[in-house]
Amino acid sequence: MSVLELTAIAASGVAAGGINAVVGSGTLITFPTLLAFGYPPVLANVSNNVGLVPGVLSAAWGYRRELRGQRRRVLRFGTGSLIGGLIGALLLLKLPPEAFQAVVPVLILTACVLVVLQPRLNRWLVSRRPDGADADGGVPLWLGVLGTGVYGGYFGAAQGVLMMGLFGSVLDDDLQRLNAVKNVLSSIVNGVAAVVFIAVTHIDWAAAAAIAVGATIGGTLGARFGRRLPPTALRAVIITVGVIASAALILG
Rank of each mutant, 00 (worst) to 15 (best):
V170Q: 05
A36K: 07
A89N: 08
S186L: 05
G78W: 03
V189K: 05
R65S: 11
G18C: 11
Q118F: 14
P105C: 08
R64K: 11
N49D: 13
S25T: 05
G38L: 03
S187N: 05
A11S: 15
G168M: 02
L221H: 08
T220R: 11
R71S: 00
L234I: 15
Y151C: 13
R123H: 10
I217H: 09
E98L: 14
I198H: 01
I188Q: 00
V74E: 04
D136Y: 07
L75T: 03
L166V: 09
I19Y: 00
A59M: 04
D173N: 08
W205Q: 02
R76V: 03
N183W: 00
P97E: 10
V241S: 15
G168K: 01
L82C: 10
K94H: 14
T148N: 06
I217R: 07
V196G: 02
D174R: 00
D204W: 06
L146K: 06
A212Q: 08
V113T: 13
L166I: 06
L34T: 05
V42K: 12
A16E: 04
A236H: 11
A199V: 04
L171Y: 06
S2F: 11
R227A: 14
P97W: 11
V241P: 12
G55V: 04
N122S: 15
L221C: 02
S169E: 05
G144P: 13
I198R: 01
M164P: 01
T110S: 15
G138E: 05
V14S: 11
T220G: 08
N122H: 12
R177W: 02
F225S: 11
V237T: 14
Y63M: 00
L91A: 13
L43Q: 12
A210F: 10
L91M: 13
Y63W: 12
V115L: 11
A11D: 10
L143M: 13
A111L: 12
I217K: 04
G62C: 02
R73N: 10
F100R: 09
L221A: 11
L92S: 05
S81Q: 05
R120P: 12
V192A: 03
G13K: 03
L92D: 01
G191I: 08
A8G: 07
S25V: 07
E5M: 13
L249R: 03
G85C: 13
C112T: 03
G84A: 12
V53P: 01
V106P: 12
G144S: 08
V145I: 02
T79E: 12
V23G: 06
P32T: 11
G165K: 00
L146I: 06
G138T: 06
T240S: 15
G80R: 01
A111M: 00
A236Q: 13
R71V: 00
L28S: 07
L4N: 13
G69E: 00
V74D: 02
S127I: 08
D174A: 13
E66Q: 09
R227Q: 14
T232P: 01
S169C: 05
G88T: 10
A21H: 03
S58F: 15
V74K: 05
R68G: 10
I238W: 06
L34C: 10
A21Q: 02
L125F: 12
A59V: 04
I244F: 15
V104Q: 04
G165L: 06
A207V: 09
V106Y: 14
G80Q: 03
V161P: 01
V74C: 03
K182M: 01
V106D: 14
A209I: 13
V241G: 07
Q118T: 14
R123A: 15
D134N: 15
I250Q: 09
R120C: 04
A215K: 00
